[in-house]
């Protein structure tokens, strides 16, 4: 479908001194829209929160089981886009 917007991954730094942490994904037509949507959805527009967005297709990723002898042969399939970490307690609104 021509109208389909690409998938973005969203990373949030809850406060200074912490890493950005993956919080989820969303769809947006462009980077600006992705940032805005991320702010609405994942931070409820909390001021002072830093947000990164990146198109899921632009992320190079290893499989979580890469070092494992049973490395998944289908690990490079695009639909298995990555989500990285558990959400730590100190990220607001999670």
């Amino acid at each position: 479908m021509t109208g389909e917007w690409p998938l973005y991954e969203v990373f949030v730094r809850g406060k200074r001194g912490l890493n950005h942490v993956h919080v989820g994904s969303l769809r947006a037509a462009d980077d600006d829209m992705a940032l805005r949507n991320a702010r609405d959805l994942y931070t409820r527009r909390n001021e002072g929160v830093s947000i990164w967005v990146v198109q899921a297709a632009d992320i190079a990723a290893s499989s979580p089981d890469e070092k494992d002898p049973f490395f998944a042969p289908s690990g490079d399939k695009v639909y298995r886009h990555p989500t990285f970490y558990d959400i730590p307690e100190n990220v607001p609104h999670m």
Binding site: D65, F70, S74, R80
Partner: peptide, 25 residues
């Protein structure tokens, strides 16, 4: 063979109460 080993691994993760993550088989 490959499929059976992957399946055993998957079942192992479930049995240990670990989480399946996006790029896992």
């Amino acid at each position: 063979d490959s499929e059976r080993r992957l399946e055993r691994h998957f079942e192992d993760v479930i049995a240990k109460d670990q989480r399946i993550e996006p790029r896992d088989w």
